[in-house]
């Protein structure tokens, strides 16, 4: 496993949120997905700063959409995971599972 595949906690959340949102993964949906699932207030700035970093690391790719079909509609960047990104999610999730294995249910957050 290359060193670049190590991702931080928030980076991991963003990657997972992209996976959840599927074809609709852009800034707003990603932010709302994390907010909904974690119950924490998530800053737009944090999401975009992280997306830029993940893009640099080659973990995500984006395509720019046509303008939205409304007056004054904007172009949006839709994100998807690259193969490396998928690997990173799998790797982190697996590591986390292995690390938690054997802990009491309370500590694993299951109770």
């Amino acid at each position: 496993m290359a060193k670049g595949d190590f991702v931080g906690e928030f980076e991991l959340y963003v990657l997972i949120a992209i996976a959840h949102a599927g074809d609709e993964a852009y800034g707003v949906t990603i932010r709302q997905e994390i907010e909904r699932r974690t119950g924490r207030v998530v800053a737009i700035g944090a999401v975009h700063a992280t997306l830029a970093r993940l893009d640099e690391k080659g973990l995500v790719r984006y395509r720019v959409s046509d303008p939205q079909p409304v007056p004054g509609g904007k172009r949006r960047k839709f994100f998807r995971l690259t193969a490396a990104g998928e690997r990173a999610v799998r790797h982190s999730a697996g590591m986390l599972a292995r690390m938690l294995d054997g802990l009491s249910p309370e500590l694993r957050g299951l109770r």
Binding site: G27, V28, V47, H48
Partner: peptide, 21 residues
């Protein structure tokens, strides 16, 4: 303020998201 803080690459996206939401 937000536009000032954001880098050139992310500025447009950040502002667009802010406005939508």
């Amino acid at each position: 303020i937000l536009a000032l803080a954001a880098s050139r690459e992310t500025r447009a996206d950040v502002l667009s998201d802010l406005e939508d939401e």
